[in-house]
């Protein structure tokens, strides 16, 4: 994004010098026009298709094709194409403002809620186009759950937080009518609450106070509650937008363990600022760099040990971002 130019405090002199050196290396290789939206300290280079061409054996859960997002005149995401494999952890990393959160929010159409956003391209979940005009958003968001950057439990009891989704989808009935006709689902609810909280590794901490307000929990517990809430609707994909960035190290490590466990049954896509975190928990990593471009996408080990792109290497080794 343009407002990132000169935003960081790295001195701009290095920018110029690296520019010339990389230009001489890569400048003549392709006819693609050079990207000019770099942050301070970031060199320029052309992105090559094979850097983002990541192949895997299992079928793709999500496949994204030529996704473009504009916020007003701001081109936030440029021609992103990537396929996300099933039952794995995919990390999205990159400096702030690089469009990784925007990309994540496109996967369950949360960007629809931003009026200024314009989205172009295709996202398929199990081969089904989610940007089809006939897509049922309720059904889509049931299948693709989301956990946000700062914990956002509802101001309700812990139990009600978990059963919120199923109740809204009519899977659990606890209203007056349901009780009158003997179709009260309290038992089913109790089971669901316990299962979800256990999956989120929160059950042992809160099982004696399920009726307490969720806002009384600590930040880490709130975030795990949000994960449990998301699991309660039994999604196939879980999107996580820097889920641990507002938490202390202990809470963070709990979330990380949880993410690794979840990848056995769910497809997890996680945005993170923390490169060690991405290296620890993810199976494959996608690197977004300034300007909303997907620069490199490959096995996590490959990205962190031997990246193709000079800019990705610079970013990972902490030269900018």
């Amino acid at each position: 994004m343009n407002n990132q130019i000169g935003d960081t405090d790295t001195d701009t002199d290095t920018n110029v010098s690296t520019d010339t050196s990389t230009d001489s290396q890569l400048g003549a290789t392709t006819g693609v026009e050079t990207s000019t939206t770099t942050t301070a300290g970031e060199s320029e280079e052309q992105i090559r298709d094979e850097w983002t061409d990541y192949r895997f054996d299992s079928p793709a859960k999500l496949s994204v094709e030529d996704l473009n997002v504009w916020y007003g005149d701001d081109h936030a995401l440029k021609d992103v194409s990537m396929e996300i494999p099933e039952e794995s952890v995919t990390a999205l990393i990159g400096p702030s403002g690089c469009g990784k959160s925007t990309y994540l929010r496109c996967l369950n159409r949360m960007n629809d809620r931003i009026k200024a956003a314009r989205i172009d391209g295709s996202v398929e979940l199990d081969g089904m186009e989610i940007y089809d005009p006939n897509t049922n958003l309720v059904e889509l968001r049931k299948r693709i759950g989301m956990v946000f950057q700062s914990p956002n439990p509802f101001p309700k009891s812990i139990r009600d937080n978990i059963s919120y989704g199923p109740r809204k989808h009519g899977e659990i009935n606890k209203g007056l009518l349901a009780r009158l006709f003997g179709r009260d689902d309290s038992e089913k609810e109790a089971e669901l609450v316990e299962r979800s909280l256990r999956q989120a590794a929160l059950w042992d901490e809160v099982n004696d106070r399920l009726d307490d307000n969720a806002l009384g929990l600590s930040g880490g517990q709130q975030q795990r509650l949000c994960i449990a809430r998301c699991l309660a609707v039994d999604p196939e994909v879980i999107l996580m937008d820097e889920p641990a960035s507002a938490l202390d190290p202990i809470a963070t490590s709990k979330i990380e363990d949880l993410v690794t466990d979840l990848a056995e049954d769910y497809t997890v896509v996680i945005v993170t600022h923390n490169m060690q975190q991405a290296a620890r928990i993810s199976d494959q990593t996608a690197v977004f760099l300034t300007g909303g471009e997907l620069v490199e996408y490959d096995d996590t080990d490959k990205i962190f040990e031997n990246p193709e792109s000079q800019r990705v290497e610079d970013y990972i080794t902490g030269k900018f971002g």
Binding site: N108, M110, R113, L137, V138, E139, L140, R141, K142, G145, M146, F148, S150, N152, P153, F154, P155, K156, Y164, G165, K168, H169, C226, R229, C230, V233
Partner: peptide
């Protein structure tokens, strides 16, 4: 009422009326 709560509700697959009724008004 913080927008994060409405986003949370929408991400659970609740319709905007359900969010209004069960999140915004109680909060």
């Amino acid at each position: 009422v913080p927008d994060a709560m409405r986003d949370g509700s929408a991400a659970m697959g609740a319709t905007s009326w359900q969010s209004m009724k069960s999140i915004s008004v109680p909060a």
